[in-house]
Every structure is written in C-alpha cells, then in structure tokens.
C-alpha cells in the first residue's frame, strides 16, 4: 500500500498563497463573512503560518510557511474521537468522515498543529463563488469538524481510472490541488514508501524537518529548510 506524503521546499516557496486559494476552491471550504472572520472563525485547510517576523519596522519580513494537515502517522486526533469519525486510512491519509462526526471538537483540542476547523454556522458561500462549488467534494453541514484530506476525492477518482485501464496508479496520477497549483513547484507529493519518488528522496534530504516532530506524531508533511 502506498503511503502518501508531502514535502514543502521552503527555499522555493514564495509565500504567494496560491495553494491556500486553490485549496479553498477545490474543497468548497467556506469563505466566512468578515464579521465571523473578526471573531476568529476563518476557515482554512491550507493556511499560511507566520513563524516569525524578521527585521525592524519599515523593513519587516514575515517568514510564513504553508501549513496543511500534517497527516501524522501517529495522529493524536484519532485516539480521542469517540465515534470513529476520524481515522487513519490504509494509504496513510487521516480521513474525516463528516456524516459520522458529532461535533464534540475533542480532536481539535488534541491536535498540536491546530489544523482542524469547525463549522460554526451553516455553510453559506458568498454568491460570487457559489457556482464554483466542486461537485466532487461534499459541502460540510453545520456542527462538524473538517480538515485537509490531501484531496482524497482525487485519489478515489484516480484509483478508479487506473483500475479501469488495468494499470497501476502512477506518480502524478494523484496530486492534491495545492501541489498542482504551486507556481514555484515547491511542493512535492507522492508515495513515501516508493524510494524512487521525488517526495521520498526529498523527505530524506539533509534540510528536511517536520513541524513539532518532538511530539512523536511523525508528520507526513515535511519541510525543507530554507537556506539564506
């Protein structure tokens, strides 16, 4: 079985936020109203995380990295779910089953990366983007927790296509929206178990690190440190 992982090269990343936008549109992530946003209820599956600010006032340079769900190999969130709404699939993706979720938000409290988001209200997209809804992804009802799924719907379709054509899933058949859209090609995606894949090589790079690795969550999203 494949074990999907992602490596984000911070040397190449320009913090352009194309991945953030692509993710929002691909997964029908709710675009909340300004009022809600000011209350701290923005919804992002892929989010720019400002780690630190370099320099002094007029020349401030924020150092931001894209952060999605780390798809941990030892996910703290699945341990605490009382209804099996979140679990690790055999391909290593931490899935969130929306119709099963009861909205207790325990997984959110236990996620050290704080990647999960909650549907505080009924999903109501602004009129402008209503027609852009992706039919491949369900719109989450109010009161459930959602998070980045590595665009698992694309895997469903890609796997099916490959099977219908009697071939194995090849590298590049299945890539999440953020990887596809990245203009700097800073995100590698693929099978970590396949030693020949780009992502597997990149994850063993000397610059590679994982966020909060010391917690033992074994994140499958890794970063390549930027070298000045």
């Amino acid at each position: 079985m494949a074990k999907y992982g992602m490596v984000i090269d911070l040397n190449k990343c320009t913090s352009c936020q194309a991945c953030v936008t692509a993710c929002k549109l691909e997964n029908n992530v709710q675009i909340v109203s300004p009022d809600d946003a000011s209350e701290g209820r923005t919804m992002f599956w892929m989010k720019m995380l400002t780690l630190k600010y370099e320099g002094d006032y007029p020349n401030v340079k924020p150092k931001a990295i894209p952060r999605n769900c780390m798809q941990c190999d030892e996910p703290p969130c699945i341990k605490v779910c009382p209804v099996r709404a979140t679990y690790k699939t055999e391909v290593g993706i931490v899935a969130q089953i929306y119709p099963q979720c009861i909205g207790c938000r325990y997984c959110m409290a236990n996620c050290p990366y704080t990647v999960k988001v909650f549907n505080w209200y009924k999903t109501e997209q602004p009129k402008e983007v209503e027609k852009c809804d992706n039919p491949d992804v369900s719109v989450r009802p109010k009161g459930v927790v959602e998070k980045c799924t590595f665009c698992v719907h694309r895997l469903q379709i890609a796997e099916e296509k490959a099977k219908a054509e009697h071939r194995k899933l090849q590298e590049g058949d299945y890539v999440p929206a953020c990887v596809e859209v990245c203009p700097a090609k800073a995100i590698y995606f693929g099978d970590l178990d396949d030693t020949n894949s780009d992502v597997s090589k990149a994850s063993h790079d000397y610059r590679a690190f994982g966020l909060l690795e010391e917690l033992g969550t074994i994140p499958k999203v890794r970063y390549l440190n930027a070298i000045e």
């Binding site: 699939t89 055999e90 899935a95 089953i97 119709p99 992804v137 369900s138 698992v152 719907h153 469903q156």
Partner: peptide
C-alpha cells in the same frame, strides 16, 4: 468497507 472509499 473503509470509510473514505465512499465518503468524502
């Protein structure tokens, strides 16, 4: 019968 095979 894996959930993610059908749910999305």
């Amino acid at each position: 019968t894996d959930c993610w095979q059908c749910h999305r």
